[in-house]
Design a protein around this nucleic acid. Structure first.
Lengths: 200, 200
DNA sequence: CACCATCAACCTACACCTAGGTAGGCGACA
DNA sequence: TGTCGCCTACCTAGGTGTAGGTTGATGGTG
């Protein structure tokens, strides 16, 4: 049942590998082997390792941007309920796309193969929209006052680190941090902390 | 004025390189060049790349463990003031040891060159002591109730991500995230958020 | 003091492997 | 007959690690 074309299959396998071991830790041979072709055949579909990586990264982020667009559409609610709505949407996305989380983390750490700047530019509009929303709600007294940009970065760290650093979490928690149960516990915890910090 | 012996100099340079580019992204040639010797001379001091990496990592963590010992010594205060005391000590350490932060992040992401388990074992006692402290204070009503372990992990993510993902922060903030001013802003922000989340 | 053995720290040269990427051929199929 | 997708064979760069030699400091001994 391999409905995926070879190209899509390559992207799929590469996403897993890059997410797991990063750019430097992944070889084209590994990817090709898992796809079931030889390396030169892989390079027939993508001109270079870096081109493949870019394609993987942009694909992954396209999904994330699409979700963000939907999640913030209309600013349906105000104050904390809207924050919680977006948070839950984000959590659901991250839980469904663990490879995306790790890929993003590698990219953020490495500064990427000269791609980080570009990604930052794509991320920036969403960051600014988030900032504006938070500032508006704080001004209206519906959220406790903080530096809105710092607050977004705090959310970023609190949400993503747990998911990206799974092996460390396993050492500390003695359970699979990515099990359904632990993911739910994590989600509710973060939301709980932020609610208490944000509600006036 | 090179008061450092060659071995210490190697460790120093290697720490920088591993922190910046990770294990796979760093070659012994780079390190040797920067030290001012040839690679075989470097391998005279450390038997292999992995041995060098282990030495770097254990050194870095030894400093961190030493600080933790001091910071938690005596549980001088109770409730939030003690939490804030430890937080500030940790921030100061991280600001003084940016390479440590990034090294830890690489290690957590990569699962490390088979070292992560070992590191987890070293970290574990501190994690458990933190958990116990928080639970005691929560039971006494001096801190708002959360899952203590989740809370520690939230702190981990919120504090370290900003410092380790500096290149991403630069893209989003348009300023040097590691400047004295921004570091202070970050510190006060995180403490502020956690205070509001934790004080009953 | 003169002599010699030892050893640490460095070097050059080399062996070996794996990586990414290229050249060119072969078969299937429109 | 052309083109697509794949192959084998090959190239080069760069990585880790080893072999073996040089130098210079140390330190015991006649």
């Amino acid at each position: 049942m391999q409905t995926l074309g070879t190209k899509a299959l390559i992207l799929d396998v590469a996403l897993h590998r890059f997410a797991e071991h990063g750019y430097n830790g992944t070889s084209l041979n590994e990817i090709a082997d898992k796809v079931g072709i030889r390396r030169p055949s892989l390079l027939h579909h993508f001109p270079s390792k870096e081109a493949l990586y870019r394609a993987v990264l942009l694909d992954a982020f396209a999904d994330w941007f699409a979700l963000l667009e939907v999640a913030v559409a209309g600013d349906v609610k105000r104050g904390w309920p809207q924050v919680e709505r977006v948070l839950r949407a984000a959590f659901r996305f991250f839980e469904d796309h663990p490879d995306f989380v790790r890929l993003a983390r590698w990219e953020a750490l490495e500064g990427g193969p000269m791609l980080s700047q570009e990604l930052g530019d794509l991320l920036r509009p969403f960051f600014d929209r988030g900032t504006e929303f938070l500032e508006r709600e704080m001004d209206a007294g519906r959220l406790r006052r903080y530096d809105a940009r710092q607050l977004l970065l705090t959310g970023y760290g609190a949400v993503l680190s747990y998911l990206s650093d799974a092996s460390l979490m396993t050492s500390l928690l003695d359970v699979d941090p990515l099990s359904i149960k632990m993911l739910a516990a994590r989600r509710e915890h973060v939301i709980d902390v932020l609610r208490n910090a944000l509600q006036p």
